[in-house]
């Protein structure tokens, strides 16, 4: 294949990476931005999203003999809701009781990581399982064919991003979240129940990761260790983009996803990981607040 088409293919792969990364990193960034909680269990919500998607779609197709598309749509609805509910329970039972103390919550979410991971290992097992894509359509370009589903994932992530942006910047609940993020104490003095805001934000962050996972299981597979890579990449994204800056997170996810995809296609995935890790080191040295980091309050 000539260089041009090869670059196009690599760009598609990069955009796919960026799409999923945007969703997971956005969840992590939202939780950190509003709650000042570093959620180490974030990748496990992603993994749970994928595993529950497998369960739901398998159940729907085996019990009712429905086509894969129905199982997928059911998973897309059920899985994020279930993960959001689990996250909310964890938030109420653990983070709230720790008073959202930054250090304690890191340790607590490490605990959550292992609890979720081991529970899935015990129930779902160590196998990697694939969910059937809702549709198979190959887009035939002059040089190569490309999965229509992958392009759908990119588009779906873009739409979700717009929805999140709209909610945050144009709705009442978004204003409440932003007020809580800037100054939780003053927000309370104006009647905002920051407790409930925290619950909601933690659940929403987990749901974003879960949606990313449901979109990804037809391409990758559901496995109990699949949360670790996205966690690492999300952290890298959030650090490069600037802690708590949603715009920075999205731009950094695009940057990392694209470079990861392109470098993986042209050279090797290992080199891609090395380069993004190097990038983090450089950002931490020269611009510790991140490329778009919010000023310290």
């Amino acid at each position: 294949m000539a260089f041009g088409p090869f670059l196009l293919l690599a760009t598609f792969e990069g955009l796919l990476q960026a799409a999923i990364l945007t969703l997971t990193a956005l969840g992590l960034s939202l939780v950190f931005g509003v709650m000042r909680v570093v959620n180490v269990a974030h990748g496990e919500f992603y993994m749970l999203g994928a595993v529950i998607a497998w369960w739901v779609s398998t159940f729907v197709s085996s019990m009712f003999g429905m086509p894969p598309a129905v199982g997928f749509i059911a998973a897309l609805i059920v899985s994020p809701l279930a993960v959001g509910a689990i996250a909310m329970v964890g938030e109420r039972l653990i983070l709230k009781r720790l008073n959202y103390n930054p250090e304690s919550t890191i340790v607590a979410t490490i605990g959550m990581l292992y609890i979720i991971q081991q529970s899935v290992l015990l129930t779902y097992g160590p196998d990697a399982r694939r969910v059937a894509a809702p549709f198979y359509y190959r887009i035939q370009l002059p040089w190569f064919g490309y999965s229509g589903y992958n392009l759908f994932v990119i588009a779906a992530a873009a739409v979700l991003l717009l929805i999140v942006w709209f909610i945050l910047s144009r709705t009442r609940i978004g204003l409440i979240m932003r007020a809580t993020q800037f100054d939780a104490e003053t927000a309370q003095a104006f009647g905002i129940p920051i407790d409930r805001v925290y619950s909601l934000v933690f659940a929403a962050g987990a749901m974003l990761a879960a949606i990313g996972a449901v979109l990804v299981v037809p391409i990758r597979q559901a496995h109990y260790l699949m949360g670790l890579d996205p966690l690492l990449l999300s952290f890298i994204t959030v650090i490069i983009g600037g802690l708590g800056s949603l715009r920075g997170t999205v731009i950094a996810a695009l940057l990392i996803g694209l470079s990861d995809g392109i470098i993986s296609v042209f050279f090797s995935p290992t080199l891609a990981k090395m380069i993004s890790t190097l990038l983090v080191a450089l950002v931490l040295v020269f611009k510790p607040e991140g490329l778009f980091g919010a000023k310290a309050r």
Partner: peptide
């Protein structure tokens, strides 16, 4: 968060505006 609902308005020391938000947003809060 229930205290202001009882009818107490608070103007904190140093104002504590949501300084990155607009005037309208601050009033909406």
């Amino acid at each position: 968060h229930e205290v202001p609902r009882q009818g107490i308005g608070y103007v904190p020391q140093g104002r504590r505006l949501f300084s990155e938000l607009t005037v309208r947003d601050n009033l909406d809060i």
